[in-house]
Design a protein around this nucleic acid. Structure first.
Lengths: 189, 189
DNA sequence: ACGGTAGTGGACGCCGGCGTCCGTTTAGCT
DNA sequence: AGCTAAACGGACGCCGGCGTCCACTACCGT
């Protein structure tokens, strides 16, 4: 679908579009989801009208902007699945997902609150969760994972991880790391 | 200090003040900290001016409104300290604090983000944390608590607990309960 | 090079929250 | 009952974000 847009879009327009997405990504990541649309436009070096023409709503913008973060999520989960030791793979996934979410304030809220109509995000989210379920199934069979573990526990942890506030990104990442370690401890058989 | 105000305040004014605080408490709890001041005034049945006269800033209002929640925190910690089994007391404290925070959206953010100038809150917070430190010290000596546990871990958990979002209060409380159980699991030796 | 059209962004009006002023009401004392 | 000062709240102006319109610009095919 992006391809069709790419084809019919003029070169300068495409350029602006890219800069808008880049600006949105960085601003969402550092300042969270409540940055004014104006501000994103300013940083991208375009007028408000251009921004609104490309992305009529903030959700549309967020959905596109977080596409690569979503892919990063998938890569992380796939790496976990590829690990010969499922328990070790699961631990890696937890650590990396927590860090990813800690580095990007906006993505966390986008992922957890999962706005009503961001179906594109939701679909990918479901796919990632399915892979996670498979990974936990394998990890449980190794005996290192608590037998009464359920997938919801992991989701719970990820959501809770999003509640970690801090003044700087570094502090947030550090807190997130400790938190991931505690979570793994809680999941161990 | 409240006494002095009480004395010099006219009866109807005192009445309004009470209703404002009650309205603020319920609205902060259900809708979080970002409710408009207007809305609180409306629910309390007073004009905006009255609200602003009593509480010039939202922080002032929040500080007073959460005073009893803060006391509830103290009671919980004290109960934990009074428990003959420190480890059991600690578990109770974790469960109750998580639930308290889950029931009151506003209080959670007020407690964790701890606005710059809400020194009254901050002072009580520190006192509670000191008691918590004592409790964890005792719990560790029983051997049921992980030897490498630090107080910051508990704070981390409480902050993370604040990240649990849900549509209804009941759902949030349920999630919080599961989360507390996981946390206790992570802290066990 | 040039015309046509896609694309742009400054400017505009709207809305909702904020904090304050002032004419009116009412508690409380005599 | 009557007076006075305290208290009230509706109304006002301000600000910042939102979404849109239109006169101008610049790309691209010929």
């Amino acid at each position: 679908m992006t391809e069709q847009l790419t084809r019919t879009l003029r070169s300068d327009a495409l350029d602006n579009r890219q800069r808008i997405l880049e600006a949105a990504r960085t601003m969402f990541a550092t300042d969270g989801m409540d940055v004014p649309m104006r501000e994103i436009a300013r940083r991208a070096g375009v007028g408000p009208a251009t921004l609104y023409r490309r992305f009529p709503t903030k959700q549309a913008l967020a959905t596109e902007a977080f596409a690569e973060q979503m892919d990063a999520c998938h890569v992380i989960v796939d790496e976990g699945l590829a690990d010969p030791d499922p328990w070790h793979g699961l631990c890696l996934v937890i650590e990396k997902l927590c860090e990813l979410h800690a580095r990007d304030r906006g993505y966390t809220t986008a992922f957890t609150t999962a706005f009503p109509h961001a179906m594109d995000l939701a679909a990918k989210r479901e796919a990632a969760l399915a892979s996670l379920a498979e990974l936990t199934r394998r990890a449980r069979s190794t005996g290192h994972l608590r037998p009464d573990f359920v997938l919801d526990d992991l989701i719970l942890i990820l959501m809770a991880n999003g509640g970690l506030h801090a003044t700087s990104t570094d502090a947030r990442v550090a807190a997130s790391r400790r938190f991931a370690a505690l979570a793994i401890q809680a999941f161990r058989a």
